[in-house]
Nucleic acid binder design. Structure first.
Length: 510
RNA sequence: CGGAGCGUAGCUCAGCCUGGCUAGAGCGCUUGGUUUGGGACCAAGAAGUCGCAGGUUCGAAUCCUGUCGCUCCGACCA
C-alpha cells in the first residue's frame, strides 16, 4: 500500500492529486490556475502528440502556427462565439513596464487596441483563411496547430481544467456543406480510435445538444469517456461550424458555378485534459498506471545485489538481457550518452520515443519497487544473484501486480512487444468492462434522478431542449453528455412523457 | 464569482483558544557506518523573514483588519 496516496474510496479527488504528485507529472505554478508540466507528465503529452499527429497527417492535414495574441475586435465578429468566451478571456492591454513613483514596476504604454490571449483560434485563423481562399481550387484547406490557449477559469484542477492548457486545434475549410460535415465526423472517428487504441479509454461518440455545443458551432460532436468514480469526461470535440465563421470573416471563394460563395468550416481539438482522463481511467490506489503505448519507459530493469561482487555478476547478466532486448549497437551507444550512470536509458523504440531504463541507483529494492510502481511503468524486470544462478529473471506487471519467473533466453524484443500489446489490450478491456457495467437505463424521471446520483452513464429517451436540460441539471446535477449516433425505435420522453425518437446519455461530468 | 476549510522546514503536521525563553516533531535531504529479493537502522548535520501587508501591544506564529494562494462544495467551462 502506498503511504503517500489516499485511496480512491477514501477521497477520490485527493487520490487524483496524490497520483499526479507521486508520479511527478505536474506541479502548481506561482500563477493561479496554471500548472507546470514536469518531464514525466510532458512525456505523456509528447506520446499523445506523436501518435495523434501521425493520424492527422494520415488524414491529409498539415501543421502551421498562428499567433497567441488576437485583436480584441476579432472576437466580437461572431456573436455566439464572443458570448461563449467573453467571460474567460485574458486581455493584454499594455506594452511595457515602467518604474512608478514608489520605485515599483507599473504597466505603461497602453495599447490602442487590446489583444486577447487566444482562448481558441477560430477568429484569427478565419481572418487568415479569408486571405488564403480565393477559389474552389484552394479548398479544402486542412490545417492543424499544436499550441497553448488560455481560458480564465474560476475553478481549476490539474490537467482537467487549467487556465492555460496545451492542445491541438484543427481548422478546415471546404467547398461544400457535405464535405465539411464529413470532415467533422472523420476527425471525430480519428479521436475515438486514438482514445481507444492509444490511451485504452473506451468512448461513446455522439452529438452535443444545443445547450452543450461549442459557441459558434452549428453542431458539436464529441467523444465521452467514463471515469472510475462514475463521472463523465468529454475527451474530445469536433465542430461543424457551417458558414458562421466564414460569414463573420468573409472566407469567400469563386465557385465552380462562377459565383462567390462562403466556405464551410470545421474545427476540432483535444487537450492536455486527456492526460487527466488517462490518469483517472486506469490508475489505482498504488499510483499511476500507464498504457504501454503511452509509457516513455515501457519496462524498467531492476538489478538486485548486495556486494560489489554480486553487482558485477548481475551486471554481466543484465548486459546479456539488454542485448536481447535492444541489440548490441544500442547497448554500446547508451553508455556514451552522458546521462546519469545510475539510471541508464536504452532506446527500445526510437520512433515511439520509448526506452528501457536500468535502475542502478544505490537504493533498496523496496524503494525502487514503489518508485516505478507509482510512475506507472508497465513492466519491471528484476534480476538478482539467485536469478543469475538459475538463468532466469523475475517479471512483474504493474497492471495486475502479477509475478512470473522466466528464463533469460525468453526475454527478447519480440517478447516485450508481445507483453506490451497484451497489457494494452487488457487495460482497454478492463476500462470497457467498467464502462459497460455503468451504463444503465432510466425509464422514468425518478429513475433518472436516482441513477444519475449513483454515477455512471444513464441512457434514456429524451428530446433535448435548453430549458428542460437546465431544470434537469439543477435537480440531478446531470447533463446530457451526448446524443449517441446509434439510434433506433421510439420511446416516452423521460421528462415530458411525450413520444420521442431520441435517446440520450445523461451523467454528472467533469 | 458565492459558501466552507487550510496556509508554520522539501512533505505531513503540533504550537494559536489563554500573546512572553533560542519556534518544535515525524518523514524526506546531506555525510559516515551497518544494511539490502516489497518503503532498513544508528550517529552527526543542513534546512523556517510562521503565506503576504497593515494594525493592536513593552512584546505577535498566536489577537484584529485586509490581501494572496491551495483544497472541497456550488455557478461556468475542454
Amino acid at each position: 500500500m502506498a503511504k503517500n496516496i489516499k485511496t480512491r474510496a477514501e477521497d477520490y479527488s485527493q487520490w487524483y492529486l496524490d497520483v499526479i504528485k507521486a508520479a511527478q507529472l505536474a506541479d502548481y505554478s506561482p500563477v493561479k490556475g496554471c500548472m507546470v508540466i514536469r518531464p514525466e507528465g510532458y512525456a505523456v503529452w509528447e506520446a499523445i502528440q506523436r501518435d495523434l499527429d501521425r493520424r492527422f497527417k494520415e488524414t491529409g492535414h498539415v501543421n502551421a502556427y498562428f499567433p497567441l495574441l488576437i485583436p480584441q475586435s476579432f472576437l466580437t465578429k461572431e456573436a455566439e462565439h464572443i458570448e461563449g468566451f467573453a467571460m474567460e478571456c485574458a486581455i493584454v492591454t499594455h506594452s511595457k513596464l515602467q518604474k512608478g513613483p514608489d520605485g515599483k514596476l507599473v504597466p505603461a504604454g497602453p495599447l490602442e487596441e487590446p489583444f486577447v490571449i487566444r482562448p481558441t483560434s477560430e477568429t484569427i485563423i478565419g481572418h487568415m483563411y479569408a486571405q488564403w481562399v480565393q477559389s474552389y481550387r484552394d479548398l479544402p484547406l486542412l490545417i492543424n496547430q499544436w499550441c497553448n490557449v488560455m481560458r480564465w477559469e474560476m475553478r481549476t484542477r490539474l490537467f482537467l481544467r487549467t487556465a492555460e492548457f496545451l492542445w491541438q486545434e484543427g481548422h478546415t475549410a471546404h467547398e461544400t456543406e457535405a464535405q465539411a460535415q464529413m470532415e467533422t465526423l472523420r476527425m471525430l472517428d480519428v479521436y475515438a480510435a486514438f482514445a481507444e487504441e492509444f490511451l485504452a479509454i473506451p468512448v461513446i461518440k455522439g452529438a452535443k445538444t444545443e445547450a452543450e455545443k461549442f459557441p459558434g458551432a452549428v453542431t458539436t460532436y464529441c467523444i465521452e469517456a467514463l471515469m472510475q468514480d462514475g463521472k463523465a469526461l468529454q475527451a474530445g470535440t469536433s465542430h461543424f461550424l457551417g458558414q458562421n465563421f466564414s460569414k463573420a470573416f468573409e472566407i469567400k471563394f469563386l465557385g465552380r458555378d462562377q459565383k462567390q460563395q462562403h466556405a464551410w468550416t470545421t474545427s476540432w481539438g483535444v487537450s492536455t485534459r486527456l492526460i487527466g482522463a488517462m490518469i483517472m481511467a486506469h490508475s489505482d490506489d498504488d499510483g499511476l498506471v500507464l498504457p504501454p503505448k503511452v509509457a516513455a519507459c515501457p519496462a524498467v530493469i531492476v538489478p538486485i545485489f548486495k556486494t560489489p561482487e554480486e553487482q558485477q555478476k548481475v551486471a554481466a547478466f543484465i548486459d546479456k538481457l539488454l542485448v536481447q532486448l535492444v541489440g548490441e549497437a544500442e547497448c554500446a551507444a547508451a553508455k556514451n550518452r552522458g546521462t546519469d550512470p545510475a539510471l541508464l536509458r536504452y532506446f527500445f523504440d526510437k520512433l515511439a520515443g520509448q526506452s528501457i531504463l536500468v535502475d542502478w541507483r544505490d537504493n533498496r529494492p523496496g524503494d525502487k519497487h514503489f518508485h516505478w510502481e507509482q510512475r506507472g511503468v508497465p513492466l519491471r524486470i528484476e534480476a538478482g544473484p539467485r536469478d543469475v544462478d538459475s538463468g532466469s529473471v523475475m517479471i512483474k506487471k504493474r497492471l495486475d501486480r502479477s509475478k512470473e519467473v522466466l528464463p533469460l533466453a525468453a526475454i527478447t524484443s519480440d517478447w516485450l512487444r508481445g507483453q506490451l500489446d497484451t497489457i494494452q489490450k487488457a487495460m482497454f478491456d478492463k476500462a470497457r468492462a467498467h464502462r459497460d457495467a455503468n451504463i444503465r437505463e432510466a425509464g422514468s424521471y425518478d429513475e433518472l434522478k436516482k441513477l444519475a446520483a449513483e454515477g455512471g452513464f444513464v441512457k434514456c429517451w429524451f428530446t433535448p431542449n435548453k430549458e428542460t436540460e437546465a431544470k434537469i441539471k439543477e435537480e440531478t446535477k446531470a447533463t446530457v453528455r451526448c446524443v449517441p449516433f446509434e439510434q433506433s425505435g421510439t420511446g416516452k420522453d423521460v421528462y415530458t412523457g411525450a413520444e420521442t425518437t431520441t435517446r440520450v446519455i445523461f451523467a454528472q461530468s467533469y
